[in-house]
Design a protein around this nucleic acid. Structure first.
Length: 391
RNA sequence: GGGCAGGUGGCGGAGUGGUCAAUCGCAGCUGACUGUAAAUCAGCCGUCUCACGGCUUCGGGGGUUCGAAUCCCUCCCUGCCCA
């Protein structure tokens, strides 16, 4: 399932779909999935609602070279709803994305909606009651339901419903979120086995399932959570909640140590990571897969990631300015800057347009600008992953 | 020539005696964005000062008043209507 192929000594496990070879300074590998193989490390753009905003799926694959994208259980369940997805066949067919898909469980919505604004829902040990921010309608999500939906989406990788608390919650509250996450993970696994059996899915074709590690900044809680999840047994483990502190700095020790708690043969998924430098750091700690809204959201807001020469960074020296820089194309100074966006990029933006033109697209609020910037940034992320794989 | 309406900061447009350096929108400048409630959000936006604070403003000029963008006189300008 997962094969690690770094320079480090191999430690392959019996299941030939998933083997690893890696070390302290990052590892590379291959995951074999129903809808294709993915080389690790890899980055997935967030197609939360079934689309990467403004970009046609074909561009993601053919022009940018992305191998997998992330969709969200909660959002697709609300809209268009599972009836439509089933009529289409599954999420792949609905979206016309034949390559691997990973669905997030909706757990993050617990965090971003309810923990931030309790009026929008309620979390109990049994279930999560959401109120849709769009129309106020009420919805219930349980661990079982989340897994069922993800099977119906037909994804290649799925994630257990978890409870990600804000990092500034008390230790007590975070500890109780850990316990709830563990108990939900058990229920997810039971439901997962049930669905595999019921749907008669072969081991070759079965989707991978990820548990999510909570515990905030407390290493012992992260360790405890990991150990309990490992007992349940998952194909991979995610770093849950946020990996950064209130100042936006990566919690290096927690992220590094948590990777170490996870068995080497399992996939390590750094959810919501992150900035390019955070990804490089996480990679060096042993994390394999990433997803984040940064390249697309910041692209839509005018920030462009520009790599320096040919990604000449060392994984021991991955400060921002050593291997890339950013510009905000909205800045007035680009009004008459007729140079290319980046000399080191061959995306359709860099191949055809000047900074002055992109500035004009943005100041005209032309969607093409956001689209081109998103494509450029995703290409940057995809190229970064390629560089890590070859490093 | 006559009648009516009006001239406010880059633009549009509030304000019609004090709490006005002047609501608000646009434009402009800057920042933020991390399992997407985000094509969003925040700050600045007369001038000098890092700031406290100061200085000069509401077509021009002159008055009234303790005090005027707001009231009066006059000049200039714009739009519409009638000759």
């Amino acid at each position: 399932m997962f094969e690690i192929k770094s320079k480090r000594p191999a430690s392959t496990r019996e299941d030939n779909r998933l083997s690893t070879r890696g070390g302290e300074n990052g590892r590379v590998g291959i995951i074999k999935l129903k809808n294709g193989e993915i080389k690790t490390p890899f980055f997935m753009p967030d197609a939360t609602r079934g689309f990467v905003r403004s970009i046609d799926n074909e561009i993601l694959d053919k022009k940018i070279g992305l191998e997998a994208i992330l969709i969200n259980t909660y959002h697709l369940y609300l809209n268009p709803g599972m009836k439509i997805i089933k009529e289409a066949g599954d999420a792949h067919k609905f979206m016309n994305w034949p390559l691997p898909l990973l669905s997030d469980s909706g757990g993050y919505q617990v965090f971003s909606l309810i923990h931030k604004n309790p009026k929008l829902g309620k979390i109990t040990d049994e279930e999560v009651i959401f109120r849709s921010p769009a129309d106020g309608s009420k919805h219930i999500l349980t661990p079982e339901k989340s897994i069922q939906i993800q099977f119906n989406l037909g994804v290649d990788m799925m994630v257990c419903l978890d409870d990600p608390p804000p990092n500034d919650y008390s230790r007590e509250k975070i500890a109780s979120a850990v316990e709830r996450t563990i108990s939900w993970a058990k229920r997810c696994k039971v439901e997962y086995e049930k669905q595999i059996k019921k749907r008669k899915i072969s081991n070759e074709d079965r989707p991978l399932i990820f548990g999510v590690i909570q515990g905030g900044e407390y290493l012992d809680l992260r360790k405890h959570c990991t150990e309990e999840l490992v007992k349940i047994g998952f194909d991979g483990y995610g770093f849950g909640a946020r990996h950064i502190d209130a100042e936006g700095k990566i919690m290096e020790e927690v992220v590094r140590e948590t990777a170490g708690f996870i068995p080497e043969n399992s996939l390590r998924f750094a959810l919501g990571v992150g900035t390019p430098e955070d990804i490089v750091k996480c990679f060096s700690y042993g994390w394999d897969m990433f997803d984040c809204v940064i390249p697309t959201r910041e692209g839509r807001h005018g920030r462009l990631f520009l790599r320096k020469s040919n990604f000449q960074f060392s994984i021991f020296n991955f400060q921002k300015n050593t291997f890339y820089e950013t510009i905000n194309i909205n800045n007035g100074k680009f009004k008459d800057d007729f140079s290319p966006i980046s000399e080191n990029c061959d995306c359709e933006l860099c191949a055809h347009h000047t900074r002055a033109y992109l500035h004009h697209l943005f100041s005209s609020k032309e969607p093409l600008g956001m689209r081109l910037a998103s494509i450029h940034n995703l290409k940057f992320y995809a190229d970064l992953m390629g560089a890590l794989r070859e490093n």
